[in-house]
Design a protein around this nucleic acid. Structure first.
Length: 488
RNA sequence: GGCCCCUUGGUCAAGCGGUUAAGACAUCGCCCUUUCACGGCGAUAACGGGAGUUCGAUUCUCCCAGGGGUCACCA
């Protein structure tokens, strides 16, 4: 039975890269009919962030990447832990780490280290200055039992380090990268337990992944260089290591790691902006993986069916915001007006607009916006009545053509008489005008464009009758009168 | 700098010894349309370099170059 986990630390907002990692774990688990767990790695007390766990859960549930086990949301939407191998929050597992570190200590696989921060800093600085790779020098590796006891009793702060064998090649297999070999000579005696008694990531992941029965570790490639330490720990305990899958990074356009400097990176930011969660997830899934066929627009469950972890790309993928826009637009266009009206409603919050109007707005902008937050501006751009008619250029010429007065009179009269104001009837009037005044040149572009200009001031926009319908009779007539007074 | 990983068009990516080297985004045309947008059609555009292996390399091997990651009592 496949069991995978997403194990972020609650340090702030959820990065889209993290979401993708979670997503791949989820897709793999579901494809293999296994479980996807969420574990919180909160061993760094200095970086804890208020509400981070809530953010995390919200991002996951909003996007449908929902954990089967571990930290979850209960029926009431409250944080809860679910499963038999908890707790799923590392700070609640301290006794466990104590137990296992003792075993390592007893076996001589780990040792106490009393080196001060200052000594370590000096050491590192010196090594750098001499051009050496910064590394722990093993100062406390061989302290006598007596000295250790004495210093502990004296209350000296200490950490516990992994005693790495010297010059040993450690090889592990990675699903996307194949066999990777690293020599312990290039590795540090990693701190396993910090001075505050908390485990470091390196120790906690191994203990937890083993105890939780994790079969596949799917994580970012930044973990690749430290994986040998983890593999060695499994060896020390006599446990089977999981299968590793290191995912490529998501990059900025400059091929650097995706960072806040160049736009949004938090899942919440994208959702707030009006990127649909299903579009974001779809887009993210395709960064580093693609299905066998040529589909690009896929639901989560379609992705599950098509997902193949062995087809994950090896190299980093640039986060192309233009393509995200396109994809989001595809999702928006695929929605019906009612559904879209509901989704854009929050963005009109301050304006108190009724549902029917919202539906009309939806039909107006559906094919013009890339994300939901553009809705108000887009509507405003189309319906804005506070404009001046152009004083020059093609638009000016159109509005000052000889046929415009004829058109104006006919239009004003017909619209005034219309009692059932809808797009179809409006279109009928325009057609009728064309029929009656065709011989005077009021037809085609010379018919539609002046009307569009009279009513909106600009030469482009959605279907004219549709705009007029949404504008309403009073507003249309008002604009026509203003045109008459100011221009005609 | 040491170590590790990566390398097909501007971007995401098919490809897994023999192909006219897919497709998508973006760009540029044309078409559709009263306009814009949508949509349709088409165009431009790629195997980092060098050695091998092979009848034949984008596909296999090695070297180089470039890019990235990592070298914390952060994850």
């Amino acid at each position: 039975m496949v069991r995978v986990r997403f194990a972020p630390s609650p340090t702030g907002n959820v990065h889209v890269g993290s979401l993708r990692t979670a997503l791949y774990n989820y897709l793999f688990a579901k494809k293999q009919k296994g479980d996807f767990l969420l574990r919180l790695e909160d061993t760094d007390r200095t970086r804890l962030h208020e509400g981070a766990a809530d953010n995390l859960l919200k991002a996951l549930y909003d996007t449908g990447v929902i954990p089967d086990e571990g930290l979850v949301l209960d029926e009431d939407g409250n944080q809860a832990q679910k499963g038999d191998v908890g707790p799923y929050i590392q700070s609640e597992r301290l006794e466990l780490y104590q137990h296992y570190i003792k075993q390592l200590l007893d076996d001589g696989k780990a040792y106490y280290c009393f080196c001060t921060k200052e000594r370590l800093d000096d050491l590192r600085e010196h090594q750098k200055a001499v051009g050496e790779t910064p590394r722990y020098d093993g100062h406390c590796r061989d302290l006598s039992q007596e000295e250790i006891q004495r210093r502990i009793d004296a209350g000296e702060p200490y950490v516990i380090r992994l005693k790495l064998p010297e010059n040993k090649e450690i090889t592990f297999s990675d699903t996307v990268r194949g066999d990777v070999t690293i020599n312990t000579a290039d590795l540090d005696d990693q701190v396993l337990i910090k001075a505050d008694g908390f485990p470091t990531y390196h120790f906690a992941v191994v203990v937890d992944d083993h105890l939780m029965g994790i079969t596949h570790v799917i994580r970012g490639e930044e973990w690749l260089p430290s994986t040998p330490k983890h593999v060695y720990l499994y060896e020390c305990f006599g446990w089977d290591a999981p299968q590793y899958v290191h995912l490529p990074n998501i990059l900025n356009a400059d091929h650097k790691k995706l960072s806040k400097r160049q736009g949004d990176v938090a899942v919440g930011d994208f959702l707030d902006k009006g990127y649909l969660p299903e579009a974001l997830v779809n887009f993210l899934a395709l960064l580093g993986w693609s299905p066998e066929d040529e589909r690009e627009i896929m639901t989560l469950s379609e992705m599950v069916d098509a997902f193949d972890i062995t087809k994950v790309h090896r190299s980093g993928a640039v986060f192309d915001r233009e393509k995200l826009d396109w994809m989001n637009g595809q999702y928006i266009k695929a929605m019906d007006d009612e559904a879209l009206a509901e989704r854009i409603a929050p963005y009109f919050d301050d304006e108190n607009i009724d549902h029917d109007t919202l539906v009309q707005y939806a039909s107006l902008i559906k094919e013009r916006i890339a994300c939901l937050s553009q809705a108000p501006d887009s509507v405003k751009e189309i319906l804005n009545g506070d404009f001046d008619w152009p004083a020059e250029g093609e638009a000016y010429d159109i509005l000052h053509a000889d046929t415009v007065p004829i058109l104006y009179n006919a239009l004003y009269e017909k619209l005034t008489g219309e009692s059932d104001w809808n797009a179809e009837n409006i279109q009928g009037h325009i057609k009728a005008i064309q029929k009656e005044h065709k011989k005077e040149g009021v037809k085609g572009k010379a018919l539609y464009m002046p009307i569009r200009l009279m009513l909106t001031g600009v030469m482009h926009g959605p279907d004219l009758a549709l705009i007029m319908s949404v504008l309403g009779k009073d507003e249309c007539l008002k604009r026509l009168r203003r045109f008459h007074d100011e221009i005609l």
